[in-house]
């Protein structure tokens, strides 16, 4: 393995070299991480509660998908650090997923009518 060139500053904004450049790392602490863990655990418990207390229906399915999206927001936002990234990056990654969620619900509903035309 080659030793890194000591003359290159990996954080240098003025002499930007895309092969080595990384932004300066800074921590956001662990408090938020544990808070999000308890929220995710709580949401999973709510999932299980809905499963046993509510009769199966398309409305219940949409509740499960909505809870899944809320969990996704916490995982992507906090664990994957997306809430601290630039808005342009977050938009590029998250916007396509809205179409996916729409398509998930749509095709589930559509499946009801397969073979019944």
């Amino acid at each position: 393995m080659s030793t890194p060139n000591q003359n290159i500053d990996i954080h240098d904004e003025e002499n930007y070299d895309p092969t080595v450049w990384v932004p300066k790392a800074h921590t956001h602490g662990t408090k938020d991480i544990w808070l999000k863990f308890w929220i995710l655990l709580g949401l999973t418990v709510i999932d299980v509660a809905f499963y046993f207390l509510m009769a199966p229906s398309m409305a219940r399915n949409i509740i499960f998908i909505a809870l899944g999206v809320v969990k996704a927001v916490y995982i992507v936002g906090t664990f994957m650090h997306m809430k601290h990234e630039k808005l342009s990056l977050a938009t590029m990654i998250i916007l396509p997923m809205f179409f996916i969620i729409f398509f998930l619900v749509w095709m589930m509903y559509e499946g009801n009518f397969w073979g019944t035309f």
């Binding site: 904004e13 930007y16 895309p18 092969t19 450049w21 990384v22 932004p23 990234e85 630039k86 342009s88 990056l89």
Partner: peptide
């Protein structure tokens, strides 16, 4: 520069 302010 890095438009998204993340590494490659």
């Amino acid at each position: 520069n890095s438009p998204f302010n993340v590494s490659y």
